[in-house]
Design a protein around this nucleic acid. Structure first.
Lengths: 345, 345
DNA sequence: CTGAAAGCGCTTACAG
DNA sequence: CTGAAAGCGCTTACAG
């Protein structure tokens, strides 16, 4: 027998359970939904009938009929689910959602505004309680109608624009300042910046932290040292090479994102200059302690970002009606060697 | 005005669209679902009304009413969504699902059988078309009733037990053989094995490949060299240290999984023996080319695993009714240095 | 091609 | 505490 040839068996309905238990549909519904206010002997008969028939609740019907019209589901939009950073955020969200008996729909926007909107739409059409979004669009006002439909909105990693909503972000400015001041403390004055384009919120903030740290120490900025590799991995590698091979190169690099950091570290090593060029990465990177020298990082806490975002979401859903909240997750400097190299010469 | 204080606006219904367009509910439904067989002028009026009212399709109601009772959703169960391996599988699934206009619900089982069953249940209750499962249970027969309810079943990374279903797996035996033979070719005869416990399918297969490679070269097995660190990361580190510090230690290591490999590589480096002890990892690991020596790996293709699994799922859903299929994704040996070190002494 | 009607499987006032 | 009835927003035979 091939698997597909199985007859599609109808699943038993509440009505059938009611018939077997000898009670009304209403009573079955009450028991299935927690059983508050049902006499124990009736509840027992219902539970026996449920077991006997193998009854399983139909969430679709339940969602349609219940007053709030919401399925026990939330939607999560990342740039890319295969980026380990978002993998950890996702897990944080899932851990909290699970405590609430809620499942997560997840999608990748690839930083394409249209795709983000499509996902938000598709999630809303499925009756999600809320949306957790690492947004990539310049104007989030498109979400107003989702909210009007009762969908709670929480932004993660990047705050909303043109809509007032709860958000959880990393302390990007502070973290970048710590990173750059760490390099300055090691004696560096020519510090290269490698980051996403400044229209990405996190990149703009980290660039701001970089600038503020330089300014605070009276170091004038050299625009030649500020670079925005376009496609991360590969481009980060090439951009780093350009920077190192240029005239008057930096003695240290601040790499502003995990994928960019990996490209930058790779380039420094390929040039054999890992013991001369100091590097600090924003975001921890895997195996950073095995690479020699170890890669000094300002670590984010993506799991905490996810947990916190989910907590804000459920607070809204469960009635919190106060002003918009903004949670800032601190970073942590981890010294491993690459950030403590003094300037050569 | 606080975000939560917004009145929950009802979304317009098809009935309201019908009223505005001056047509029947049926006609609106036809247009919204593709418009086959509706006169162009009527379809146009409907589309105008849709735009005007901001009508958005209610997938919950649609799912409940349609014959197959299925939402445009599939469910995916991994061990842990924050494991980058599964992140890539997830992305492969998403890419194919997206082509079908289908969204993915995702959950982590943490290798807990009960949790896997709960997730399968919860997904089915939401009317998924199918389930893609990296299973962690010893008996998948519990899924028979999901399939009976019309849910397509595809196993990924690990094949099913006690149920006949489509599956996509990596060529674990072949990949392990290639890895171990590569070490044998470099002159090693004492090769340590570090892998998940053999009740994990992939671990058992990789252990089999290890054994077959040894046997094919007339190398007798030393059970002392076969280890199963329990909790991956940390334990893999400690187990590797034990192995290296024992008497008659191995001259080479075959690490059978990405997290275990990272622990093993870390241990070898911490012992300062990275230029003496050869290492080959099953699974590529991040920054493997920046570590010195570079980490030689047998790379899997997790993205292909995900795509292939989703393709099998949609084939079933769309009527393929033949025998169960098993897709095997090949591995690829990437030489980077650590696997080419000859035995010391 | 179009519309009126039935009904998917539930939840939820409402009456008793 | 319990049940009969209405109805969530759609899809889908069916008749015209």
């Amino acid at each position: 027998m091939s698997p597909g040839s199985l007859e599609r068996a109808r699943r038993p309905t509440m009505r059938e359970v009611a018939a077997v238990a000898g009670v009304s549909l209403s009573t079955v519904s009450r028991v299935v939904n927690g059983g508050a206010g049902v006499r124990e002997d009736l509840a027992d008969r219902v539970r026996k009938a449920v077991d006997m028939l193998g009854y399983r609740h139909n969430l679709t019907a339940s969602t349609l009929r219940r007053a709030d019209r919401q399925s026990a589901t939330i939607g999560v939009i990342f740039e890319d689910v295969s980026n380990p950073f978002f993998g950890s955020v996702h897990r944080g969200v899932e851990d909290i959602a699970r405590e609430h008996g809620v499942l997560t729909l997840v999608g990748s926007s690839d930083e394409v505004a249209e795709r983000e909107r499509e996902l938000a739409d598709a999630f809303t059409a499925r009756g999600v309680h809320g949306l957790i979004i690492a947004t990539a669009v310049h104007d989030n006002a498109y979400l107003l109608r989702e909210r009007a439909a009762g969908v709670a909105l929480v932004f993660v990693d990047r705050p909303p624009r043109f809509i007032d909503a709860d958000a959880v972000v990393t302390d990007n400015v502070g973290g970048a300042q710590v990173a750059v001041e760490h390099l300055i403390a090691a004696g560096h004055r020519r510090i290269g910046f490698l980051g996403d384009r400044p229209d990405v919120f996190t990149a703009a903030e980290r660039l701001r932290g970089y600038r503020e740290a330089l300014a605070a120490h009276g170091i004038s900025q050299d625009l030649e040292l500020v670079r925005h590799p376009l496609f991360r991995g590969v481009d980060a590698y090439e951009t780093t090479c350009e920077l190192l091979d240029g005239k008057d190169p930096p003695t240290a690099l601040f790499a502003g994102q995990n994928l960019i950091s990996m490209g930058a570290v790779r380039a420094v090593h390929d040039r054999g200059r890992q013991d001369e060029i100091a590097v600090v990465s924003f975001d921890d990177i895997p195996m950073a302690d095995v690479i020699r020298p170890g890669v000094t990082v300002v670590a984010q806490d993506p799991h905490a970002l996810g947990r916190s975002a989910a907590e804000l979401l459920f607070a809204r859903r469960d009635g919190y009606d106060g002003p918009t909240r903004r949670v800032v997750i601190p970073t942590r400097l981890i010294e491993r060697g690459s950030g403590e190299i003094p300037p050569a010469g």
